[in-house]
């Protein structure tokens, strides 16, 4: 360093830059505010669900709601009206939801999982490049389209097929709604499972193939065992999506609260009932309207639990090979 430089060094300005710190602070503030809005709204919704549900449980005991097997939420406008006492047993709704979700999972699990295995292990890069986006288009179809497809195409088809073999199929059957809902969640399962399978290190495939395993032996003995926790997580996530799905069931499953395990009969679901309870003009403080909040809370708790469990599983699995 020359003496000249040494002299100027003392004047180096390191205390006040020419760009304002306030800009940084404003930016930070805006960003925080934006994320706060989302959080606060969520918290608000949860609390509203909670308090309205509490108001509902003042009128209808929680035990009746959770364990009652009769659902007919008509309340009387006049004391002498027929069916004056509403019945708020959510069990037929819960079983209907589970039945349809179960059918959907029966359709989507094999189809989604096998297409994920095909895409990640067998398909050439070129096939993969156009099949994967195509599968993901399925995820982009609005659920209302799936809904009327189920109600107007699949349900009548099932009905006529059923009649031809002597089965009595309801025109709004759990089967029609479940099948189409299954198709809807295929891309969810296939794309999550595909990620999980791809996360299994290539070195394990090499090891297995290098020992003289076939592709299918490698998949069964090495890849699937390593990927199974993640796949389970993706299935749970898909199940929670199926349970919360609304449009398809509103249009294809109907509103008859039957307590049945027969997929050919009409059933109703929690989501379809919430829609039915709140469409049209309603008194805001009747038990009928308030029951929608209780159903919403129930649904929220179930899907929240499923989501938390599945995300935990998926994340735990991801860490394993990092």
């Amino acid at each position: 360093m020359s003496p000249e430089n040494a002299a100027t060094a003392a004047k180096l300005n390191i205390t006040a830059g020419n760009r304002s710190k306030t800009v940084e602070m404003i930016v930070t503030g805006v960003l925080i505010a934006c994320s706060l809005v989302a959080i606060l709204v969520t918290v608000g919704i949860v609390f509203s669900l909670l308090f309205e549900s509490l108001r509902f449980f003042e009128r209808v005991p929680m035990s009746e709601f959770l364990f009652g097997t009769k659902w007919s939420p008509q309340t009387a406008l006049r004391a002498d009206q027929v069916a004056a006492d509403g019945a708020f047993g959510a069990v037929p709704l819960i079983t209907g939801t589970l039945l349809i979700s179960f059918i959907a999972m029966c359709v989507a699990t094999p189809l989604g999982l096998f297409s994920a295995i095909y895409l990640s292990e067998y398909a050439s890069k070129r096939t993969r490049d156009w099949v994967k986006p195509l599968l993901e288009i399925l995820a982009g179809i609005p659920t209302v389209v799936y809904g009327f497809f189920a109600a107007l195409v699949v349900a009548p088809m099932l009905r006529s097929t059923g009649e031809s073999v002597g089965l009595n199929v309801s025109s709004e059957s759990a089967l029609a709604a479940g099948l189409i809902m299954g198709v809807m969640i295929i891309p969810l399962i296939s794309s999550l499972s595909d990620d999980v399978i791809n996360a299994v290190p290539q070195s394990l495939r090499d090891a297995s193939l290098g020992l003289g395993s076939t592709d299918s032996e490698t998949i069964r003995n090495v890849i699937l065992p390593a990927a199974i926790p993640g796949i389970a997580g993706s299935l749970l996530l898909a199940a929670s999506r199926a349970i919360g799905e609304t449009m398809i069931v509103v249009m294809a499953a109907g509103l008859a609260a039957n307590l049945t395990a027969n997929p050919l009969e009409a059933v109703t679901t929690i989501t379809a009932q919430i829609v039915a309870l709140l469409t049209g003009d309603q008194e805001f403080d009747s038990a009928k309207t308030l029951s929608a909040f209780a159903l919403g809370l129930l649904l929220f708790i179930v899907t929240l639990i499923l989501n938390v469990i599945s995300l935990k599983i998926v994340n735990k699995y991801r860490e394993q090979y990092d």
Binding site: L204, G210, L211
Partner: peptide, 26 residues
């Protein structure tokens, strides 16, 4: 062919199985 021409890789890549099952795999 690969049964007769085995391979050991750069990075040790045991299967996430027991020691016994690793050997018994082939």
């Amino acid at each position: 062919l690969r049964q007769h021409v085995g391979m050991v890789f750069q990075k040790p890549n045991p299967f996430p199985k027991s020691i016994y099952d690793n050997i018994a795999y082939g």
